[in-house]
Simulated scan of single mutants.
Amino acid sequence: MPSTLSPRTDPAAAPPVVPAAEDTVAFADPPTLGRRPALAADRDATPTLARRVRALLGRVLRSSIVLVLFLALWEVAPRVGLVDAVFLPPLSRVLDAFGTLASSGELALHLGASLSRAGTGFAIAVLAAIPLGVAIGWYERVSDVLSPFLELFRNTAALALLPVFILILGIGETSKIALVVYACTFPVLLTTISAVRSVDPLLVKSARSLGLSSLRLFQKVVLPAAVPTVFTGVRMAGASSILVLIAAEMVGAKAGLGYLITYTQFNFQIEKMYAGIIAIALVGVSVNGVLLALERHFSRWRTASS
């Protein structure tokens, strides 16, 4: 049967349309031209390695400029006569004495003695204060019983009780560790109590409505919410453990950074005395850095949730 379609409408009869060269260029070029600005914008939005390095160096310089100026002033002031170089030697001489103590092994001996005492007392205080703080902050009856005792001793300085610890426990290691425990307990205890009491009541009600037991409630709601505040007290306790121990070692000890400072002062070895002070500062910064890293590790859920 002959086809009824006209040549204009019949696909078989219609001649194939061949695009011209100009049409090919017109269809090929616009997508390519359209992609180029997007790729350039992506390259501009993505920071290069050089930019990251410059940003990091900028942050380091901004955070250390005051420290560098202080160290430069320490080096220059004794040399130009602003202070007596006998009582405040230039920083270079102090660093030489620091290197001498480190190379001879004397600094490692005193540092190990101080860290063992401070670490033992700090660990005992944290392990005892956090459960006690949770109990006081969560149970009202426990708080009513222990609050008067806490209010009495929280305002008593640890160093004021140093003679008492020495009289009762002797002049050996026990009294120094006990003093560190006393000094570290209250910062951790008080911040733990505050952290538990400041947990959002709506979170607690929601967890209880889901049928969580008391143990799971502490594990999933109370403790994660209290971790940042608790670690604030832990960091304060870490600083207190070093400071109180150094003072205790100055009174009665045969090794330790506090003993090193007192011994070098009495023998007028001023450079070594300042070297011991620098060692104490480095220990304090290191301890705070470790505790800050632990706080970030246990508080990762806050970053994930935000």
Score class of each variant (00 low, 15 high):
124 I>M: 07
106 E>Y: 13
114 S>V: 08
93 R>C: 03
124 I>Y: 07
94 V>R: 00
164 V>T: 12
124 I>K: 08
148 P>V: 07
112 G>S: 15
70 F>Q: 15
105 G>Q: 13
153 F>W: 08
98 F>K: 07
90 P>E: 04
147 S>N: 11
104 S>G: 12
162 L>G: 06
87 F>V: 05
122 F>G: 00
152 L>R: 08
150 L>C: 03
129 A>Q: 03
87 F>C: 02
84 D>K: 11
90 P>H: 11
88 L>W: 12
89 P>M: 14
69 L>W: 11
135 A>K: 03
100 T>A: 13
80 V>N: 03
85 A>P: 04
139 Y>I: 10
150 L>P: 00
89 P>A: 07
67 L>C: 07
127 L>C: 14
69 L>Y: 10
122 F>C: 01
135 A>L: 12
125 A>W: 03
93 R>G: 05
92 S>D: 14
96 D>Y: 01
89 P>D: 13
142 V>L: 10
132 L>G: 06
73 L>Q: 01
141 R>N: 10
137 G>H: 10
156 T>V: 15
117 R>C: 05
109 L>D: 09
160 A>H: 06
94 V>M: 03
116 S>M: 13
160 A>I: 08
144 D>R: 14
85 A>R: 13
79 R>F: 01
161 L>Y: 08
157 A>Q: 15
145 V>S: 15
80 V>M: 05
135 A>W: 05
146 L>H: 01
92 S>Y: 05
108 A>Y: 13
133 G>T: 00
160 A>R: 08
131 P>L: 01
148 P>F: 02
77 A>P: 10
119 G>W: 02
166 I>G: 09
132 L>P: 06
155 N>H: 14
129 A>E: 01
140 E>V: 09
